[in-house]
Structures are given as structure tokens and as C-alpha cells.
Computed example of a mutant assay.
Amino acid sequence: MSTTVNALLREDLRDFGGYRSARSEALSGSVWLNANESAWANPSDPGATLRRYPSPQPQGLRERLAQLYRVAPAQLLIGRGSDEGIDLLVRAFCAPGRGRIVIAPPVFGMYAVCARLHGAEVVEVPLRDSEAGLCADLAAMGDAALESGASLLFLCSPGNPSGELLPLDAIAALARHLRGRCLVVVDEAYGEYADVPSATTLLTDHDNIAVLRTLSKAHALAAARVGCVIGNPALIEALRRCQAPYPVPQPVVEAALAALAPEALALTRNRMQAVREARARLADGLRALPAVRRVYPSAGNFLLVRFVDAQDAFNALLAAGVVVRDMRALPQLGDALRISVGTMEECRRVLAVLATLRVEAAA
């Protein structure tokens, strides 16, 4: 077991075997009577493929994802989107009522939600608003992790909603500082839009880094709920023992494999470039509007925008049938909306609506 996993895994889970389902056994046969499944297919399933439980970790999909992210299959655990990965990490490394995590708000809310549902304390080191954007203070986060005894530190890169891209050398330095003391989790849900190397390239030298990836964004499978945790094999095995038996339904496996076929991946790469170009044009268009105070740089498929009157902007867009994310309830974002980068026509529609806001309202 790795140094970090051995040091940080909940003591009561170190010898925990988890639940071993009927599909966990490597058996072969022609008559399957070991899982109490129906002997008959459902009438809605003429192919009789859904009456059987799926593999806990479908090998074909695991190998395809490992190839996509350039890691070994043993370094990867498939789950129900990134959300399940976050929950599993908190479950495995935060003792109920005593664990701690470190985050940099405003950030993706599921880190804090999972922690609080598990009774873990959330240590906050807020993002700093500067000319460069909303930026995480990694040194301060590392110090907070050591001072509080946190076992998990969550980073989001590209950041949601900040759009910030964290340098890999800074992540590596943080991992070295926390080795054996804290696991650094890098959420790369929007990694494809950044077009830079992944934090998975750091895994060989850092056993206390885990990376979250998903097919929800760039691969357009949000409804399928396919994500994964990537890390040291010992970490993956520990998380697998904490996971429910059948996390990935068979129809979802088939949809994911189709999305990862060579021709589909080529189309996805082309679309990533199109999104980056549309993001730049949308940002330029927004910056030219009197109603806009600031557009933050973004490496994701969205822009964080401050408005003179965010309610006015939100209402105008909604009246035109355009739904954006109201960020005003989050710390530091009392005048901000988050706008996803849509098609070129959708982006033009956003700009056209916001251009109708009265100049007096932006004065």
C-alpha cells in the first residue's frame, strides 16, 4: 500500500473487504444461477441484456478510459460521474464526525456537500480576486491542511466557476509538501477545454495525488453519469471497497464505449477547438458591453461575468429564453453570472440580449 493511502485511510477501513457481489467473482459458465436474477427478460428488453447485473468495473470501458487518460487500468475506478468519486474519497478518508477537507471557495459545491453529509469539517481558503482572475492560494491551502489535520484537499482545474487553470508544477510542489499528510484531489472535469497536460502526469512521482475526470462535459454524456477517479492502485483498491456493487448500468457502458470510439474522439477534439474559439469571441463581445463589469479568463467551457446589475441581466436573458447560472449566492460573487459557451448562434443571442440593457443602468 502507498505511503499516503496507508497513513490517511480510515483505520476502521484498512481491513475492510467491502461487499463482493456475484459479478465480482471471476467465473465462467453457460447457466448463471448465482445472482438471483430473473430467468426471463423484461418485455421491454427483447434482447434480454438487462436482466443480468452488469460488471462492477466493466473491463472494456476501464481499458478504454485508461487509454484515453494515459494511465494503467489499475489506476482507474469508474463511477457515477465525478460526484461519486468525490463522495468515495470523503467516505474513505474522513472518519465520520472527525474528518476535514480543504477547499478554495467559490468552487464546485459538491466537495463541501459530501463532506458535510459525512460529518466532516470544511476548511475554507478563499480564492483571491486579482488582475489575473480568481486564483487559488495553493501555499495557504497546504498550510491550512497541515494546521487542521485535513486528509483531503480539493483543487478544481480548470476552476468552476473561476475558470482558473492551475500550473502542474505548483500542484506537484503542493503534493510534495503534503506527502503522507494529505491527499491532493485535482478535479479536471473541464480539462479537455484547456488543452494542456493533465495532473495524471504527476502520478508516477506523487502517491498523494488523485485526479477526477468525467465524460459529462467534453464528451457530451452528462445524462449517462460516467466519471472516474485516477490515482495510485492502492488508492483505487481502497475506494473500490467503499463503492456500491454495480455503479455503471450496461446501457451506460455501451453509450460510453460508443463515445470513446476513434471517430467520436476525433469529433470531440474538433469540438473542443470550436469551443475555445467561441469562448474567446464571447468573452470579447461581453467585455465590449456597458452592462458588463468584468469577464474573468477561463480555461473551461464557461465564463464568469460580473455585471453592473446582475439581476437585470439575468431577467433579460431569461425573458429571451436564455438560462444562465446565477452565482450571486456564492462568496465574492454578489454581482456575477456564469454563462456556458454554447453554439455560435447561442452566443450571439446572449450578446444581443445583453446589448439591449440600458446604458443608464450600467453607469
Rank of each mutant, 00 (worst) to 15 (best):
N232I: 00
V186H: 02
R269K: 11
E254D: 14
R271L: 14
Y190C: 05
R179Q: 14
R271I: 00
Q243K: 14
A244P: 05
E263Y: 07
A199F: 08
L174T: 11
P245L: 04
C228M: 15
A222Q: 14
A266G: 06
E192K: 07
T268S: 11
S216F: 08
L235R: 10
Y246K: 05
V211A: 09
N232K: 12
P249F: 02
C242R: 00
L203V: 05
D195A: 15
P245R: 03
G227I: 02
A238R: 03
P251N: 12
V275K: 00
R269H: 14
L282G: 00
A222G: 02
C182S: 13
L202Q: 00
E188D: 11
L260Q: 02
R181T: 04
A274L: 14
G191M: 03
Y193C: 05
L174Y: 10
E263Q: 15
L265C: 13
N270P: 01
P249G: 03
V229L: 10
G231S: 10
E254Q: 14
A280F: 01
P197L: 05
R269V: 12
A218F: 03
R276Y: 01
A175V: 07
R271N: 14
R213Y: 06
R241W: 09
R179H: 15
A264W: 05
V252F: 02
A189I: 05
A258K: 11
A264R: 12
L202E: 07
L265D: 07
T200W: 07
A266D: 13
L203H: 10
L174R: 05
P197E: 07
T204N: 12
V248N: 01
P247S: 08
A261V: 08
A255W: 00
R240Q: 14
L260P: 00
L235D: 00
L202Y: 09
A199R: 01
N270R: 15
A258F: 08
V252H: 01
Q273P: 00
A222I: 04
A264K: 04
T268D: 04
P251F: 05
A280E: 06
A194C: 10
V248S: 04
